[in-house]
Each structure stands twice: as structure tokens, then as C-alpha cells.
Design a protein around this nucleic acid. Structure first.
Length: 224
DNA sequence: AGCACA
């Protein structure tokens, strides 16, 4: 503290010799500013600061988790999401269990466990329809809940006015990369109490959205 | 119960 005070007390004269810890540490260009997929996932200015805090290891871990769950590297996310509303409406997209890697699915950590081996319902989609949100909740709050889940892409809040009481109620739609990942988050957050003090009103109810077309990576044409 | 965005 003495050093700081001394420096503060004598600002007019700059020391001719370089201090032991030179301040200019900034690079001219941040080469590791973020993975290309990160830029695609966070196009808004609100979350632009997020990619600065993402370390390389985190990006690798996320990719590895997605790889474990889907067997597909995460850098080609555009190929994962297809327009489900087209011709696939009646049947499940694919059999989620693969013959060879059943043993690896069992040791998936964290939120991604449990659902990977269960077959998806026929109406499954990669978008979740969430109700039971308190009227004053923000998009940032909801994003905090869903962001840790693997495959999370975006959350969209919708304000609806209740028919009976005139209350403002909030719905939201949450996009995931795959329907399987959406199902994982749905199971984990079903009945989640948004306000822990008010046990009656605020608990989440999640379903698969009816019309999932959220244009995940820019455009309805996803055919490669 | 309730389903929007392109």
C-alpha cells in the first residue's frame, strides 16, 4: 500500500527506469478471442462479453461433451439441426442409442446423464416450451438456468396476458442443438422452483414446442 | 391451460 500511495503522491514525474512490473500487457490483436462457433452462438451485444471469458479449455470441454453425447463434433452444428417440421413429424428422428458406445453413455457427467438412452417421444423437438415463469423475470435470468445444459443455444421470452386475471404471464422458448439435449434439460428442470420462497406459483413446466423452427444457424435452408 | 420467432 505504501507503494501505491507513493505512486499516487508523485504523479507529475515519471520514472525514467521501467518499473518491475510493466503495465502494457495488452496485445495488439486478441488471437484467441473465441472459437468460431462461439461467435455464431452469441450474436447479440449483451452477451458479447461472454466470449472474452471463455478459455480454450472450456471450449474444448464443451465440444467433448457434445461429442460424447452425439458422437458428432460440435463445430458442425449447422448440420445437426434440421427442419424437423418438414417430413419427420410423426416419428422420432433417429434411434439415440448406438450399438457400440453404450458403455460410454453411462459415465456422462453432469446434466447430460440419464436421458441419452431413453427413446424420445414422437413429438420431441429441439425447442422447449416453458411456462410457469414469474411475470417479472428477465431473459437474463432464464438464460442463467438453461445455459449450463449441453447444446443450449438461445432463449426467447414471450409476454402473454392471462385471460382470467389480467396478469401478465411469461412463456419462453429455449432452443437446443438436438432434441435429445432439449429432453435432458426438460427432465432436469421439470418442476424447478423459480422462487424458492413462493412454493405455490413459480415452478417451471416444460414441454416440447409444437413448431420448432428457430433458424438455429442462420436461415431455413440447412441442406448441405 | 397457455406456443413465438423467421
Amino acid at each position: 500500500m505504501a507503494d501505491a500511495y507513493w505512486r499516487y503522491a508523485d504523479p507529475r514525474q515519471q520514472a525514467p527506469m521501467a518499473p518491475p512490473q510493466p503495465a502494457p500487457l495488452k496485445r495488439p490483436r486478441p488471437d484467441y478471442g473465441g472459437a468460431p462457433e462461439t461467435l455464431g452462438y452469441y450474436p447479440r451485444e449483451d452477451e458479447r462479453t461472454v466470449h472474452l471469458s471463455i478459455k480454450d479449455t472450456e471450449a474444448i470441454n464443451a465440444s467433448y461433451d457434445r461429442y460424447l453425447q452425439n458422437g458428432i463434433p460440435s463445430y458442425s452444428t449447422a448440420e445437426l439441426v434440421r427442419p424437423v417440421g418438414g417430413g419427420l413429424n410423426g416419428r422420432p428422428v433417429e434411434d439415440p442409442r448406438l450399438p457400440g458406445i453404450g458403455g460410454m453413455d453411462n459415465r456422462i457427467i453432469g446434466y447430460s446423464g440419464g436421458r441419452t438412452e431413453a427413446p424420445l417421444p414422437p413429438d420431441a423437438s429441439n425447442t422447449l416450451f416453458v411456462e410457469g415463469l414469474p411475470a417479472n423475470c428477465t431473459r437474463r435470468e432464464v438464460s442463467h438456468i438453461f445455459r449450463p445444459f449441453i447444446g443450449f443455444q438461445e432463449v426467447r421470452l414471450v409476454n402473454k396476458d392471462s385471460r382470467h386475471h389480467g396478469d401478465l404471464l411469461v412463456l419462453c422458448f429455449v432452443d437446443f442443438a438436438t432434441a435429445n439435449q432439449a429432453a435432458t434439460a426438460m427432465d432436469a428442470l421439470q418442476g424447478y422452483q423459480f422462487d424458492e420462497h413462493d412454493r405455490d406459483s413459480a415452478y417451471l413446466r416444460l414441454q416440447f414446442a409444437r413448431f420448432p423452427g428457430p433458424r438455429p444457424s442462420g436461415g431455413p435452408r440447412n441442406r448441405r
